[in-house]
Nucleic acid binder design. Structure first.
Lengths: 146, 146
DNA sequence: TTCTTTGCAAATTGTTTGCATGCTC
DNA sequence: GAGCATGCAAACAATTTGCAAAGAA
């Protein structure tokens, strides 16, 4: 965990205590592109700190749950795999994911494509969709039958 | 499992053997509104047959996996819960779900609301979204902060 | 000092797998 | 009769939880 000076303010701003473990988790997620499993996060932290057993899995789960509750991270569960988490921060760069059922590949879907749908849903049903990080399953360009 | 005469043809048409277990699973799903966990399915089958231990969990998992592969059922994994399955049959009544992050409640979203988005995605990214059974998370009418 | 968070280990829960037996075609 | 499907129990894997010790405010 190199840049505590970068992550600590984020935690404090969210009203959370700034601890080594939390800073490490935030750093690991912020530097990631796309989704990370708890295992990925642990490995990354252990690598950064060059110290096996640097953080307990339960701590990572608890931290992520807390962060998700605040809206700083989002989670997605794909079939046949563990939950994965992603940093969504201020949701300024909210986006969704297109996940291929065949190859498992993942591509980003910019928020503005979803925008109209979200608004539509909220108007018609009073349900407020969470911004960002929705996973849409289907078949990617390379795997589709045609 | 009351109506084997209704489910058996479905299985046969799909090229599968018509067994008691499979008929029971298909029946349980077809009569359900919304998603069902494996546990739900088992309980329902046991209730219908008034016979505890009527079907093994592993059989249900295997059957659902088979059916999903053929496209007859769809699955969704939400955080904090087991996989859930839903009958999508011919996809004629495709639809998505709105799942509340707070109370866990689920409501249907008619296909025509999603329609434009799906088309939009396919046009802009060459990714073909699977019809139906998409779960959108957010906050329902009763749980939203306002 | 006081209240929170962490680590550890044990307990759950959800899902998969191996194999002998039973059932469908 | 041949081969796939099922049940059962054991193996796995992913999370969760309880509790005492360590850390942050």
């Amino acid at each position: 965990m190199s840049c505590t000076n970068e992550t600590a303010p984020i935690l404090r701003a969210a009203g959370l205590r700034s601890t080594i473990a939390r800073n490490a988790v935030v750093a690991a997620l912020r530097h990631a592109r796309g989704h990370r499993s708890v295992d990925d996060i642990i490995r990354r932290i252990e690598g950064d700190m060059a110290m096996p057993g640097a953080i307990a899995a339960s701590t990572v789960y608890r931290t992520l749950e807390t962060l998700e509750g605040i809206g700083l991270v989002g989670s997605v569960r794909l079939p046949k795999s563990a939950v994965t988490f992603e940093w969504v921060g201020g949701a300024a760069d909210a986006h969704s994911h297109l996940v291929c059922d065949r190859c498992g590949g993942e591509q980003l879907l910019p928020a503005d494509v979803m925008e109209p749908l979200m608004r539509d849903i909220e108007e018609r049903t009073s349900f407020r969709p969470a911004p960002g990080h929705l996973a849409i399953r289907g078949e990617c360009e390379h795997c589709r039958p045609d």
